[in-house]
Design a protein around this nucleic acid. Structure first.
Lengths: 225, 225, 225, 225
DNA sequence: TATGAATGAGACTTCATTCAT
DNA sequence: AATGAATGAAGTCTCATTCAT
């Protein structure tokens, strides 16, 4: 009979000007880092709502008061945690090859693998995004950036006559990007076991992607199944 | 006129039932319905976390205590609200036509329109699903049901040699279903304005869907762009 | 982590004049009796504080509202239950014999057996006596009456030169009466198992009693052990 | 300045520790002690059931929330209060004399005087013992310890041929210990005036005790009446 | 900077009792 | 007399944040 806690006070828009310790001292830096690490661990373990500032401090081995030397609020530290994560979800470092198929495949795989590696915090980000507009925006902008990079690629493909020219790049990019994002959640943030395999998911997502864009390569070998 | 405060739990019987009004009387049924309606309104307005039981009661025009005649907790009434909504997101009663393209198109449109009509509560469901496993499961099962219906259709298409036989129906169904769900959120639950049009989204999603499945119809007129 | 409920409102001194159904109808009498029976059962099961009026009604098979047709409050019905019980704890019907030893023995045995037979409600009476002065007084007066009957007997024994004339009857009566009451609780209302046997307790209490009063009978056979 | 209400229980970690201040600082220790003192005063004044945590805090001069820094609940602080009291009810340190009669007398007097000095809290302990098994057990174990010390002494008397060998030490100890406990309640926790004098009660209890055990001292002067 | 105690608003929930039918 | 829904006062407990040392 789960019931749900209130975290409270101060959210979007702390206009307090208090200078917080930035960790200029090496000791300060260390404390701050410990708090960040602890926060991530606690958030992953308990979710944002149930995470208590006190728990974070305990986990970090600092006193409760110290927390506010470095962070304005629970929300703020959460954003800091978020900013330190997920940075590379879209790191389309697929630059290893020129083969379009391989690049798509690599991007998909990268997304899923990175998501898997960060599933714990991703789940919490997902949660807070439904609560806090700032975090929502972070998430949104990342997904949007992902979509934009896809969009550029689609245009390139169309320009190269590799992709169906009827496809609207902007819509398709969002749709396909969302599809991958959705699948990642399905695979790695389900409360119930799912019958999907990550490797196969990469293959299938890539196939759909190629089909969807109408990419017909000269020698497009079906992805290894 | 001294009064005796009470002791809860302990003594001998740890757990106590609690006869919740099932609305045997028409008056009871009415109150219950008022509470459900009020709850939905308050949840949409304030979100789950900020909604207070007291607000729901005020909105329903009942006394504070009446709430607990009918519901155990805010969580429970929320689940009841959820169960009364979204019932037809998947109502793929697109049976008006036999044309596969039209059916896909109809299903997508139905999904988006229904989502749009319920965007307020959908946003909250989305929120609570990240908090309450029961609600998550409701959501998940619905999306899964959606995917299963897609899966069946894909198999049919493949059987009829209309769709790419290499596509894995189970994966594709989840992916495409998720894509639509994602797009719905993008369109109707964004905090920032988005540059997408619902009608066009239906067209584009359908096109991607058709492409993805490799559906090549004899005389498939490209959806109006 | 037992915590403790508040029952509330109205206790000693309900000065309301509302005429309550006295059960003049035979149907009314029946309902009233059902409530009394149910109340005793619920009080024994849950204790006074945790017993809910609603539970009593459920147990009795009546509606919640009906309760107040017959009783003013939870407290009142409890007193009615008390009055219907324990009446014979002191029923010193030891008149079967003239042998003083046997009479004492019989009284002790009667007390313990009667207590045992009513241990459930006795425990609750005990509880409420610490809360409600009226109930405390009922209990006190009964114990006092018990003591007074003992006192009379002691005086008789002294008058007959059977008992130590130095013993103060009033003090001894309270002490010995309290001793028996205490032992009854020990035997029958312990939360933990105790290593005492009822029969042997009767013997030993009687022996102490006799010794205490210095009763030296011509042919005083030690009580069968 | 929106705030986020929280969700309790559920999510992943059902149970949460809660670092209760153990009073590491002297300031903390002081607050804790103030709360304990205040609690005792409030419990004595209002009884357990009517005592509110808020009252205790007011009495202690602390904020409402501070209470929970030190105690989990009203029940817990009550147990702590109990543990700090009554510690010497059984302190049969009557070792000033070797005279058995005097020792018994001293023990009885000690019990009554100590009870008298703590009658207020004893009454509440008595009350809570009928509600909370833990408190019942504390009480029970103390009385049991009292009885055991009596038992040992009885065995010693029997071994020294001072006491009736037919008396069962275990039963007699409980009976006599209970007798004293009962009398203490009668004297000091009656709602109505009682016609007993403490000094005389000591005398009479001692006499009964001696008689009961059949202690016949060489030159036992009857206690002053 | 660090510490850990103090603060206090505020939501939830219970259930005896009343009331309209 | 019976029914069962409605009422609402009241008390517990949480935890983010502040503060004194």
């Amino acid at each position: 009979m789960a019931s749900i806690p209130n975290a409270s006070r101060g959210w979007q828009g702390e206009t307090r000007a208090k200078r917080r310790g930035t960790g200029r001292t090496s000791r300060g830096r260390q404390t701050r880092d410990q708090l960040l690490d602890a926060a991530r661990a606690v958030f992953e373990r308990d979710g944002f709502l149930h995470a208590r500032v006190a728990d974070i401090c305990d986990e970090a081995g600092t006193s409760h008061g110290s927390f506010y030397t470095y962070f304005v609020s629970k929300e703020e530290i959460f954003r800091k945690v978020v900013e330190s994560v997920e940075l590379d979800l879209l790191a389309v470092n697929a630059g290893t090859t020129d083969d379009p198929v391989e690049r798509i495949r690599a991007a998909n795989e990268h997304y899923l693998r990175t998501y898997a590696a960060n599933a714990g915090i991703m789940r919490v980000i997902h949660q807070v995004a439904t609560i806090d507009v700032d975090v929502w925006r972070i998430r949104f902008q990342r997904q949007d950036a992902f979509a934009h990079s896809i969009e550029r690629r689609i245009r390139q493909f169309q320009h190269d006559h590799l992709a169906d020219p009827d496809v609207e790049p902007a819509y398709a990019a969002q749709a396909l990007g969302g599809m991958v994002a959705y699948f990642a959640e399905l695979l790695f943030n389900s409360h119930d076991p799912v019958a999907f395999d990550t490797d196969k998911a990469v293959d299938e997502l890539t196939r759909i992607w190629l089909n969807a864009l109408g990419i017909r390569l000269p020698a497009a070998p079906a992805p290894a199944s």
